[in-house]
C-alpha cells in the first residue's frame, strides 16, 4: 500500500510539472492538429469521393484517423525515447538505482501524471469539439466505449514498455540512431496508426498481426469504429493483454540486464 502511495506521488508531481510547461502543451497540440489535417486530407484524396473502400465507409475511415491522432497525443505525452536515452547517457537513470523504488515503474507512474494533464487540458477539449462539428462515427453502445477505453489503456502500456525497453538499449550501444529508426518505423506503420491494417498487403498484414504494435493503435481504433465487433472485441483485448504481459517481461529483462551492467561494469 505504502508503495503505491509513493508511485502516486510521482503521478501528482508529474502532473504539476506539466503545468509548468504550458507552451509545450500548446505546441504539441498544434502539431497534433497539423498531422490530423494532413492525414485527413490524404485519406479524403484517396477515397476520391467514394462512399466506401475495402468495405469501410469514408466516415469510418475519417473517424479512424481522428481517433488515431487522439491516441497518438496520449502516447506522445509520456517520457519520449530520446529523453530516456539522454537519462542513460548522463547517468541520471543509474543514480536512481540508489533510491528505494523500481525505476521503470516510477517512470510509468510519472507518465500517468503528464499524460493525464495533457488529456484534460488539451486533448479532450479539442477532440470533443471535433466530434461535435465533424461527421464522424461514434460508438452507439456504452459498452463499446468501455472496451475502447480499456483497449486504449492496454495500448498505452504496450507502447510504454516497448519505448522504455528501446530507450534502455542505450546502455549497450554507443550509437542509438538505428534503434530510433526501428522504433519510429514500427510505431508509425506496423501499429496501424496512419494506415489501418486492412489496407496492408496480405504478407504485411500477417506480420503486423503477430507483432505487439497493432495493439497500440489498430485494436482500440478498430473497436471504436466498429471494425472489430462482437466476440472479436474480447479476443482482441485478450491479445493486447498477452502483449502487455510479454512487453512487461521484455522491459523487465532489458532493465535487469541494464542495471546489472551498471552495477557490475559501472555503466
Amino acid at each position: 500500500m505504502h508503495q503505491y502511495r509513493m508511485y502516486w506521488a510521482f503521478t501528482r508531481k508529474a502532473f504539476l510539472r506539466s503545468a509548468v510547461y504550458r507552451f509545450d502543451v500548446w505546441s504539441r497540440l498544434g502539431s497534433n492538429l497539423i498531422f490530423l489535417l494532413m492525414w485527413g486530407s490524404i485519406w479524403t484524396a484517396l477515397y476520391a469521393g467514394r462512399e466506401e473502400a475495402g468495405g469501410v465507409s469514408f466516415e469510418a475511415m475519417l473517424t479512424y484517423i481522428v481517433v488515431s491522432q487522439f491516441l497518438s497525443g496520449i502516447n506522445g505525452a509520456g517520457t519520449p525515447l530520446w529523453e530516456i536515452q539522454e537519462k542513460v547517457r548522463t547517468g541520471d537513470i543509474a543514480i536512481e538505482l540508489m533510491r528505494p523504488f523500481n525505476v521503470p515503474l516510477r517512470y510509468l507512474f510519472a507518465d500517468f501524471g503528464s499524460v493525464a494533464f495533457y488529456i484534460i487540458t488539451a486533448l479532450l477539449p479539442l477532440y470533443i469539439v471535433l466530434f461535435i462539428f465533424m461527421d464522424l462515427t461514434v460508438p452507439a453502445s456504452w459498452l463499446t466505449w468501455v472496451y475502447f477505453i480499456a483497449a486504449a489503456f492496454n495500448g498505452f502500456l504496450i507502447r510504454y514498455c516497448i519505448e522504455m525497453a528501446f530507450g534502455l538499449l542505450s546502455f549497450f550501444l554507443v550509437e542509438t540512431g538505428g534503434i530510433e529508426d526501428i522504433f519510429y518505423f514500427a510505431m508509425s506503420l506496423l501499429s496501424g496508426s496512419v494506415i489501418p491494417l486492412w489496407f496492408f498487403p496480405d504478407w504485411l498484414e500477417k506480420i503486423a498481426v503477430y507483432l505487439p504494435f497493432q495493439g497500440i493503435y489498430y485494436i482500440p481504433n478498430a473497436i471504436f469504429i466498429g471494425e472489430i465487433f462482437g466476440g472479436e472485441i474480447l479476443f482482441s483485448i485478450g491479445i493486447q493483454l498477452f502483449w502487455v504481459i510479454a512487453c512487461f517481461f521484455l522491459l523487465r529483462f532489458v532493465w535487469n540486464r541494464a542495471s546489472h551492467k551498471v552495477i557490475v561494469q559501472g555503466g
Binding site: 502511495r5 509513493m6 508531481k13
Partner: peptide, 11 residues
C-alpha cells in the same frame, strides 16, 4: 515539491 516527493519515497 522535491521534499514532499522524497517524503513519500522514503515513507
Amino acid at each position: 515539491e522535491s521534499f514532499e516527493l522524497l517524503k513519500e519515497i522514503y515513507q
